[in-house]
Amino acid sequence: MSTSLTKHIASNGVATLTLNRPERHNAFDDVLIVELTEALQALADNPAARVVVLTATGKSFSAGADLGWMKRMASYGEAENLADARKLAQLMHVLDTLPKPTVAAVQGPAYGGGVGLIACCDMVFAAPEAMLALTEVKLGLIPAVISPYVVRKIGSSHARRYFLSAERFTPDTALRIGLVHEIAPQDEVGPLAHSWAAQLLNNGPASMQAAKQLVAEVAGRPVCSELNEHCAQRIARQRVSPEGQEGLTAFLEKRPPNWVTQ
């Protein structure tokens, strides 16, 4: 049994996925990509898991592509590289669209695909030691598969700079450009991420899923009558949904809603 990824679901519903290849700086290979994708898909379908925390062991969060994996890819033809790239694309898509909140605890450096994982998470907490970089062009490559998520997070101007320069940048810079939400001391990053995960349990599970979908639906769209109508229909459906009715009733009755465990 592989130990490159560990999984744990606490009794309160917080699920933790931990990248566990510290000797490889938690770099991706084809095995880890499949393991992480399958683990996320399983959590999506598991009602016992309500929030997902993504973290890592060792000094690095993720160094991107594993050297041995890159050597194998270098010998592949275009068709084999395409199949390989599609697996990584699936991982990013599954993480980005997971119907549950995702919280990243970034305790160390993240490069390439590691930055992609961060960009796909809903909330990101990083340590001062968590240097970041998109170094693909140094290898004659491009950050293609992760680009939709990174560009959406940091914008095209910052993406042009960091995609082209391949320079390392600090968590402070990542905070400024929108990739990271908060910086905390290294030994506090994990507890902070889990603290926020626990706070998210106070919110309606279906409403958080719908809110996450709402952001994807309205981001980048011009405000127009069509969008306004879509949003009006969205809140109307949510108000009459079982969770919406329970939340409103609980508020009026001054009691916790049924998804909050005492």
Rank of each mutant, 00 (worst) to 15 (best):
I177H: 04
A193Y: 00
H181C: 01
R152M: 14
A193Q: 00
G178P: 11
Q186N: 15
L179V: 10
T173V: 11
P171R: 02
W196M: 07
P185T: 13
T173G: 09
L201K: 11
I146H: 03
P191I: 02
D187R: 11
S165L: 05
R152L: 06
E188M: 08
P148D: 05
K153R: 14
I177C: 07
A184D: 09
A193I: 08
F169H: 05
S165M: 08
W196A: 05
R160M: 15
Q186E: 12
Y162Q: 06
G155K: 03
G178R: 11
T170C: 07
A159I: 06
V150K: 01
S156W: 12
M208C: 15
G190E: 01
V189D: 00
F163S: 00
W196D: 05
S165E: 11
V150C: 03
V189H: 00
P191S: 14
V151H: 03
G155E: 08
G190L: 14
Y162M: 09
R161N: 10
N203T: 13
E167K: 14
N202R: 13
A184W: 01
M208F: 07
R176E: 15
L201C: 11
L200P: 04
S157L: 07
R176K: 09
G178H: 00
L179D: 00
P185M: 10
V151L: 04
L201Y: 06
S207M: 12
A198R: 03
K153I: 13
I177T: 05
Y162R: 07
E167G: 14
G155M: 09
L200W: 05
M208K: 09
I154S: 05
H194K: 11
Q209A: 15
S207A: 15
E182C: 03
R168E: 15
P171V: 04
P171G: 11
S165A: 05
Y149G: 12
P185R: 02
V151R: 01
I183R: 01
Y162T: 00
E182I: 04
S195P: 02
G190R: 01
L175A: 02
G204T: 02
R152S: 10
V150S: 01
W196C: 09
P185Y: 06
A159T: 13
I154F: 03
Y149N: 00
